[in-house]
Design a protein around this nucleic acid. Structure first.
Lengths: 349, 349
DNA sequence: ATCAAAAATGAAATCGATTACATTTAAAAA
DNA sequence: TTTTTAAATGTAATCGATTTCATTTTTGAT
């Protein structure tokens, strides 16, 4: 374990001051090109590497952005991450990723940790069961920019990047209705989270617009993992639905598999539509209709928005307003929502 | 933007020295319980938060582990990440994730950056086209522990966490042969990477053990994305194979979809086996046979191994040897490799 | 050759914690 | 009560870079 080469070593070796070394390595015009080159060469030769910890302490920044995710094991999450990374790499920020595994407690701990790490900004998607949001207060008090995406809380004083979940929920439901399905079951998750609550509202509105009475028995909330989804599905099956609107493609795929297993034809007997446009949906059969949910763009936008806020804050031009961006989403019609087959309905297996 | 509360502020407020404050907040037995409580209370009241940058500078550590991934958009990658995170969270390390997008250039840049960030250790899976490994030298020179997983290089002086790819490749091939398939096409990726090269060797051995001649025309390398996979598949189709061994489940699913689209029955006309045990495989139809590739365990083991190395290094007990761990993998037989149907072979559509 | 202005460099403070070493205070022993 | 020892606290150096404010050197104009 060799000892680190510091600018002091370079200064000594070249008989210069650390100030000059520091400036040279930072490409400052204050140092003569000739000197700069000498310093560069020596740094190279001695194997100097900048100590970013020291630099960050002095500069009172970390050039690090915290990313607080509810989960990472989905195509959507990795797309968002890719989008964030694309922008942050270009802007020379590092990202510190923490995920809560949908657990509010871990979210709080992670938030605290990222704060102590002095991240320059925070990008957040809330865990399923987070209710209070006090843990973000330190950021607001210190004026550290925070951007929420996807799962947001309306009243918070910061930027939000979302899609129009109400519209998307409406579209999904309306499409099923247009295809002749009438009793549409809806598998959703915690209605505490805006995304699910708004989609449900869209679902209700689509029914109302066609004079179909809303039946609460046709809606089930669950965690969306395999077991819970199957349980919810089976409960709903007792209500004899002719279609499923599932709030996430993975869960939709799980349902489709189970439904087909028990002899139900999709489409025809049963229509199924998902949400997210996970690649998964285009590889299963029948191919899954869904709502395109542009994770990459969302990540890019979130990162872009955050970095802008960081910059305007640094330049001291006052607190920028919270910016709300709605990313376009769209209905993707594939095979799982083909027209309902009114003749041979064989629902009771 | 309020100013930060530091231990100096606390010291002044309580008329104590920063030494005592620091010790109290670190739970040192050197400070009287009564004093400690007073300090705690004041810290709480004034909203003190530890500045980890300052702490890390002084302690010459970062308590951060760098994770260098070739990609993050797969179930395998997120599983590994989850495993790493599980351990690092418990051991109170942060992780800095960088991914190269399979690009050797970005891998080099990321490596450099992580080094400058003074990560305490590094977990790596190489990009597809990385050939030289000089960029890791600074870590070796400074004695910073590095652990490779999955995509490794044999001769490097560090720990490696892998599965037995030779055996897995053998098993996959042997299983297809056992089911009656004879002309097995193999879609793989860069043979520069140990994982693909070893699987290919396993494939060859399985053929050899059954006295089947190896035909190079039945093997295609590609990037494994959708387009390239389809191209490789079509090229191989010209060789009239009766089975595909595809080195990754996503690519296998893409192939299955295309094959079925053109009227080929799986299994029966064609057997297909994947690799990785992505959830995807259990949701498509027919369900995909594959090799279980325990990402979570791999991530956990890598993190565990790395942290051990960091600890023994700190305690000064000499450089620990590179530790090589082979994680068990296993053949998962599902539907896509059902017995070959010898009677009605309708390969030419 | 002289001087003002511009360019290049240096000295030292600073960022916020930790910690070796010194000193004071309290408790235990004589 | 005095001495010895242990416990608690304080002083100041340190980590490695950046940066303000000198100071020196160079350049260009006269």
């Amino acid at each position: 374990m060799e000892k680190q080469v510091t600018i002091y070593d370079l200064a000594r070796a070249l008989n210069l001051s650390t100030a000059t070394i520091s400036r040279a390595l930072d490409n400052s015009p204050l140092v003569k090109p000739h000197t700069r080159e000498k310093i560069r060469a020596m740094a190279e030769k001695m194997g100097y590497r900048q100590n970013l910890i020291a630099r960050n302490l002095r500069k009172q920044q970390s050039r690090t952005i915290g990313v607080l995710l509810h989960e990472v094991n989905s195509y959507f999450a990795t797309s968002v991450l890719a989008g964030i990374e694309k922008i942050t790499t270009r802007e020379k920020y590092d990202i510190l990723i923490a995920h809560s595994g949908e657990d509010g407690g871990r979210e709080i701990a992670n938030t605290r940790n990222l704060f102590n790490k002095r991240v320059d900004g925070l990008i957040v998607s809330l865990a399923m069961n987070t209710s209070a949001t006090d843990h973000f207060n330190p950021f607001f008090e210190q004026g550290i920019p925070v951007v929420f995406f996807d799962r947001v809380v309306k009243k918070m004083p910061c930027s939000k990047i979302v899609i129009d979940n109400f519209k998307a929920g409406y579209q999904a439901t309306a499409h099923l209705l247009d295809q002749g399905y009438r009793r549409i079951a809806h598998i959703t998750a915690s209605l505490q989270r805006n995304v699910y609550e708004e989609r449900l509202r869209g679902y209700k509105k689509a029914l109302a617009d066609r004079n179909i009475r809303f039946s609460p028995e046709l809606v089930e909330s669950c965690s969306l993992n395999r077991e819970d989804t199957l349980e919810a599905m089976n409960k709903l099956l007792a209500q004899k639905p002719d279609a499923f609107f599932v709030t996430n493609d993975f869960a939709a795929a799980v349902c489709m598999d189970a439904l087909q297993q028990s002899g139900i034809r999709i489409p025809g007997d049963m229509g199924v539509i998902g949400f997210n446009n996970d690649i998964l949906g285009s590889l299963i059969s029948p191919k899954l209709s869904t709502i395109d949910y542009p994770g990459l763009l969302m990540g890019e936008t979130a990162a872009q928005t955050l970095i802008e806020k960081i910059k305007t804050k640094k330049s001291g031009k006052g607190t920028p307003e919270g910016k709300n961006v709605t990313i376009p989403s769209s209905l993707i019609i594939r095979e799982s929502t083909g027209k309902k087959d009114r003749a041979g309905r064989s629902l009771k297996s």
